[in-house]
């Protein structure tokens, strides 16, 4: 179908964009890459009165590596640019491995980091990676809230619902440097490369000098209304000597008790739990190898 009528506004600066959002509030939608918003408009699932196109905001298109190894990624950075940046595999290898899983190059050429995060689709890979990486998001507005920094875990509040207020713009994603001894893996099962995955997860393990697990992160996509963490499974892993048996127990706990997938036309919830369990065992084994090599 064709999108419903709207007033198109194209601010040239962040200041102008925030001014427009303050003015139009709930009547406006922010147009970033448009790879999710335009389908929503074409299906007429949303009929905003105003589209605020932030593609002219070059000031939000950057990837900076800080002295402490952390990353600052501007919200309007195209996903393809992040995918091809040679610094990312060294600084945030989990993020580098995540990018090619997002749809197709034609989509990533246009899709943005901030757009995918703000869209907050629970089947999206970037929100899952952001939670697994303990990322933080910088939100700005012209209200008294001003600038605030929200951890990824608090940002995703529900199905396509985030901590963003109507007049706020997600401006930056901050990814802290991984501690030494950290390994990672992103595994998913989709019918075709680039399709919405039935199940998948980002896993991170950090080992102490004695080889025990000091911290673990397991975050699942398509497993609930938000990127789903598995705190109980992670608690089972932390403080322990890694082993196949331990990984199997944690995988079982996460897949059976902590995630909440639903049936859809392609897969039942039971099948998704089965996938999640198998993928968790595999992801943990890969993360362990990488942590030991790190």
């Amino acid at each position: 179908m064709k999108p419903p009528p709207f007033e198109y506004l194209a601010p040239a600066t962040l200041d102008e964009a925030l001014e427009l959002l303050a003015e139009k509030g709930g009547e406006a939608k922010v147009l970033a890459g448009g790879q999710s918003l335009v389908p929503v408009l074409n299906f007429r699932l949303a009929q905003p009165a105003f589209l605020v196109d932030i593609n002219g905001l070059d000031e939000l298109d950057y990837i900076e590596v800080e002295a402490d190894g952390s990353l600052r990624i501007g919200a309007m950075t195209r996903q393809r640019r992040l995918e091809l940046d040679p610094r990312i595999p060294l600084r945030a290898p989990l993020l580098a491995a995540t990018m090619p899983l997002i749809a197709h190059p034609q989509i990533r050429n246009r899709g943005t980091v901030g757009g995918s995060l703000a869209h907050a689709d629970p089947s999206g890979e970037l929100p899952v990676a952001a939670v697994a990486l303990d990322a933080e998001f910088v939100l700005r507005s012209h209200s008294r809230r001003g600038e605030r920094v929200v951890p990824a875990t608090d940002f995703f509040e529900g199905l396509m619902t985030t901590a963003l207020a109507e007049d706020e713009l997600l401006c930056e994603c901050r990814v802290p440097a991984a501690p030494p001894g950290t390994g990672w893996a992103f595994r998913e099962v989709a019918r075709r490369h680039g399709d919405y995955a039935h199940a998948g997860l980002a896993a991170r393990l950090t080992l102490a000098d004695d080889g025990k697990i000091v911290s673990a992160r397991l975050v699942y996509l398509s497993a609930g209304e938000v990127p789903m963490s598995a705190p109980r499974a992670c608690a089972m892993l932390e403080g322990e000597e890694p082993s196949e048996g331990l990984f199997a127990e944690a995988a079982s706990t996460a897949a059976r008790d902590e995630i909440d997938p639903s049936d859809d036309i392609h897969a039942t919830a039971a099948f998704k739990r089965h996938l999640a369990e198998a993928l968790t065992r595999r992801a943990l084994a890969i993360a362990l190898d990488r942590a030991r090599a790190a």
Binding site: Y8, G34, Q35, V38, P39, N42, D53, Q106, R110
Partner: peptide, 16 residues
Amino acid sequence: LLDGQPVRSCLLFAVQ
């Protein structure tokens, strides 16, 4: 191709 890169023309507005 938009500035040399393949994109979906159904997900862009002409004004862009």
